[in-house]
Design a binder for these strands. Structure first.
Lengths: 132, 132
DNA sequence: TTCAGCCCTAACATATGTGTCAGGGTGTCA
DNA sequence: TGACACCCTGACACATATGTTAGGGCTGAA
């Protein structure tokens, strides 16, 4: 497919696709007139790139790992494993944090809702001490 | 504790701590002479900020969440509930994504380890067709 | 043929996270 | 007192991801 459709399907801009390509993360076929032709595999790859970037990897890092993350193996990937594990640590820590935080938020929301409701019911509610 | 120790404990630079503070993500107490004093709570908060940034959030986004995400309530959070729910969606999506990604990465790593092991076992292993 | 709607490259612009350096203060120990 | 290891602010520098704009070329329909 052409650039416009590819971008639309991925929900990103053509600019970003070109950027990924220039960064060496995609290799896109061209037609005779120089137009890019994206295959479905290109789309999947670009989607992964987008996710990685959205998750805090730089194109440099992604390029360094790309050998490791593609479905085919046995590249010069030994180097990349460590970096991968590092990122996993971040992710795990955040995941645990988000879990706890999510529960807290849900509680918080329902508390606020109750608070608002009771405020509406009785004007001049009691003060609440803060803590963090 | 003072800035140097705080930075060292977190494994980030003092510059970054100041940056987070300037971005409105931390409020650090000062001594009479203007020196920053970091509490353990500050450290935890800063660590979370660092993780969020390392995971692709901008300080803007983090700030937008911080008032509502702290454990104490009843702030100017009424406005924030909607944004909170939005952010929750983000978080849930990210959580799901991270989950999938983590599994994929773990699989990938073990596959690579096996690959390396078998390469080591039999020198001159058979070629593997590529696909992507 | 002309016009709309694609495509291309290149360049400049902006936001953000960090590094780094300059200029200067504080506190402690010899 | 001087040396040294801290601290502070502010400014400039750099990389990266992305937007935007300019200048120009294909293609297909009116």
């Amino acid at each position: 497919m052409q650039a416009k459709e590819a971008a639309e399907r991925l929900g990103i801009t053509q600019r970003m696709l070109r950027h990924y390509e220039k960064a060496g993360l995609l290799e896109v076929r061209r037609t005779g007139n120089g137009y890019r032709i994206y295959s479905d595999a290109d789309l999947r790859r670009a989607g992964r790139v987008r996710d990685f970037i959205a998750t805090g990897f730089s194109t440099r890092e992604i390029r360094a790992m790309s050998a490791c993350l593609s479905d085919d193996g046995a590249g010069p990937c030994e180097d990349g494993i460590d970096r991968l594990m590092e990122k996993l640590e971040h992710i795990e820590r955040l995941r645990a944090d988000l879990d706890a935080r999510r529960d807290a938020v849900l509680e918080r929301i329902s508390a606020l809702r109750e608070g608002l409701a009771s405020q509406r019911a009785s004007v001049g509610s009691p003060e609440i001490a803060e803590s963090d």
